[in-house]
């Protein structure tokens, strides 16, 4: 029985459950799901629907973080992808032609892959620290997105495109299926092929991985490409949901929320083991938190303070030094070598 506490999903799931429970008491109709015109409506459905882009970005981010990296540019890629798709559609004579929608989606996805590859090349071949390498696109990407939209909010009137983010399939929002598909692909790729093993291995010990014959650069490149792809699809969902693209605000702070979701999900920022399902739960926690705060009528921006404490708490729990400080409280003398916890003898 005691084992259940040790499972990596235990804490994220408990937090999510606690949040939901709180909502149940606070507003009993939180869990009510109603049916209108063949669509399901309700707070839970909303959480899934509005949380979809974040879950996607966080899935991509998980793999990047697992290689001891970080991708700050996802928010910008979200904006660029949505912008280019809406621009392509808005140029069309008839915005409901299926071919046009497909073309625009393909262009957006292709561009996201390219941007992901750009990040990946800077990190792997260029040997630039991930934070710094992806900072470039984080800054420039916002500008590119605004360039694409011309600084305006591009509105499209395409029912087919809107379906992506706000349509529903089998009574559920279509975006949920997109997320599920990406999650399943990511799970298959990482758990049914050796890719997951290689990612964890490279993130945990790059030089030992190289010595074992793993192409570390290839692995790193591919996770950034995948992360770009996820951000691109998230951008499509987001822009399709509101049938418009806003280069300035779309995907703002997504990088931070995604990193937070990854960390809550149990993946360490020091690389190594990663938990895709944990990340999904992490993203759901963030989304539920936002919804909850909306519901109880506190200004939604206060979520930020809560997030700050969550980030800090999770990182402190992961920090060895944090525990070491408590352990060595009563040690009066501090030897630098011993404080570092170096125990090798040579």
């Amino acid at each position: 029985m005691g084992k259940i506490y040790k499972h990596h999903l235990f804490w994220p799931l408990s937090v999510l459950a606690a949040l939901l429970l709180f909502n149940l008491f606070y507003s009993p109709d939180f869990f009510s799901i109603t049916m209108h015109d063949g669509h399901l409506y309700g707070s839970l459905i909303d959480i899934l629907n509005f949380g979809a882009p974040l879950i996607l970005v966080a899935i991509g981010m998980t793999l990047v973080v697992a290689t001891k990296g970080i991708d700050l540019s996802v928010g910008s890629i979200v904006a660029i992808s949505g912008a280019i798709a809406c621009l392509t559609i808005s140029k069309g004579a008839d915005q409901n032609v299926m071919g046009l929608i497909l073309t625009s989606v393909l262009i957006a996805v292709g561009l996201s892959l390219f941007l992901g590859a750009w990040n990946g090349l800077l990190v792997s071949v260029g040997g630039i620290q991930p934070i710094i390498a992806t900072l470039i696109l984080m800054v420039a990407g916002r500008g590119i997105a605004q360039l694409v939209t011309g600084g305006q909010i591009i509105t499209v009137t395409s029912a087919k495109y809107a379906y992506l983010g706000s349509g529903s399939l089998a009574t559920l929002p279509f975006s949920i299926f997109v997320v599920a598909a990406v999650l399943v692909i990511a799970l298959l790729l990482t758990r049914k092929t050796a890719l997951g093993l290689f990612i964890e291995s490279v993130g945990c010990n790059p030089s030992a991985s190289l010595m074992s014959g793993i192409r570390a650069n290839g692995v790193i490149l591919s996770v950034y490409v995948f992360c770009g792809l996820c951000a691109g699809i998230a951008g499509l969902l987001l822009s399709s949901n509101v049938s418009s693209a806003d280069g300035n605000n779309a995907g703002l702070w997504y990088e931070l929320d995604a990193i937070l979701a990854v960390v809550i999900g149990g993946t360490s920022l020091n690389g190594g083991r990663f938990y895709l399902t944990g990340t999904v739960i992490g993203a759901l926690i963030i989304q539920t938190l936002t919804t909850t705060i909306y519901m109880i009528g506190v200004p939604p921006e206060i979520t930020l303070v809560v997030k700050a404490f969550v980030v800090l708490a999770v990182c402190l729990i992961q920090s060895d030094s944090f525990w070491a400080v408590f352990a060595s409280r009563w040690k009066t003398r501090h030897y630098p070598g011993e404080k570092e916890g170096i125990h090798h003898v040579s």
């Binding site: 093993l197 964890e200 291995s201 945990c204 010990n205 030089s207 030992a208 991985s209 010595m211 190594g272 083991r273």
Partner: peptide
């Protein structure tokens, strides 16, 4: 430690 084991992975892996 540095060029051999991948510490956080299992024996099987």
């Amino acid at each position: 430690k540095t060029e051999g084991i991948i510490g956080d992975l299992t024996v099987r892996e």
